[in-house]
């Protein structure tokens, strides 16, 4: 029983961090109506920045995160401003081509990372990397717990930003009706730039939180793109609450799969749930709350 409890808790903690990455993706999808297939690559870049901060200056990943997030915000803004928005301005090009562009960005970022850091597996070993605490006889990882709570704190801050500030409300308004937002005086292209920046910063945050737990290599981005994509579909596209539930579901599923089936098959469990949701609940969890 304690193994089961430990597995579920571990899944929830991991899922909270996945959710943070997926919320970044869902935010971008809401405003731009495209899947950002470079999202995992942005997570990877964020992780490398945090890694370099650790290696060069001995900065703890939770501190390095505070450098990686603004850096990724800037990178995200530049990508949206000078690449994706330029493609939007061309009338004859289909929205699919913006998605293709994100694939290109993903490839460039991944190969740049390979050029600089080689394909070697790297890891950050901090004093607390493998430390645990016990609840009853369940052993729970400290970096996972800390990461989970930081992820939830960021999610809450994002929620406040989206509901309490004019800029946040403008992001939601642009996602719900772009032209109406322009009528209200919202500078929609600027909002898309800021949204992409915020989404990228959240990706960096999620990556940095996972850095003490995961090996880092240039192709790890694909893993996170797939996870974020699955979570976004699970949650119902464009929904922040949905992304949280989707993240927790995926985390628990992977964790159960790793414990009860095999470590190597943990991703299969997530993908099976993904297929089941697509088949039986195509609107995601969001559709459950709508009448």
């Amino acid at each position: 029983m304690s193994l089961f409890g430990q597995t579920v808790i571990c899944g929830i903690l991991l899922g909270g961090m996945y959710a943070l990455i997926a919320i970044g993706m869902t935010l971008i999808m809401g405003v731009m109506k495209i899947i950002n297939l470079a999202h995992g690559a942005l997570v990877m870049v964020g992780m490398y920045i945090t890694y370099v901060c650790y290696k060069s200056w001995g900065l703890d990943p939770y501190i390095g995160m505070l450098i990686a997030m603004p850096a990724l915000f800037l990178i995200g803004c530049l990508i949206q401003r000078y690449m994706i928005n330029r493609l939007v301005e061309v009338d004859s090009i289909l929205p699919e081509n913006q998605v293709l562009l994100t694939v290109g960005i993903m490839l460039v970022l991944t190969e740049l990372a390979r050029l600089i850091f080689k394909s070697d597996y790297r890891s950050v070993t901090t004093g607390y990397s493998s430390s645990t605490f016990f609840v009853g006889d369940m052993s729970i990882s400290i970096p996972m717990t800390v990461g989970f709570f930081i992820a939830m704190a960021f999610t809450y801050l994002l929620h406040l930003f989206l509901t309490r500030t004019d800029l946040g409300r403008s992001i939601r308004a642009t996602a719900q009706d772009r032209n109406a937002a322009i009528y209200m005086g919202v500078n929609a292209p600027r909002v898309t730039v800021i949204t992409f920046g915020i989404g990228s910063a959240l990706a960096a945050a999620g990556g940095s939180l996972l850095l003490p737990l995961f090996y880092l290599w240039p192709d790890i981005g694909h893993l996170f793109t797939a996870k974020a994509f699955i979570i976004t579909i699970l949650g119902g596209m464009g929904s922040t609450m949905g992304a949280i539930f989707g993240g927790l579901t995926l985390g628990i599923a992977e964790s159960l799969g790793a414990t009860y089936i095999s470590m190597g098959y943990k991703d299969v469990v997530g993908l099976v749930i993904f297929l089941l949701v697509l088949l039986f609940l195509p609107g995601g969890f969001k559709s459950l709350t709508k009448r």
Binding site: R169, R172, A173, Q176, D177, N179, A181
Partner: peptide, 9 residues
Amino acid sequence: EGRRLFPEM
């Protein structure tokens, strides 16, 4: 035309 409110706000 058609009001164009932000339905989820």
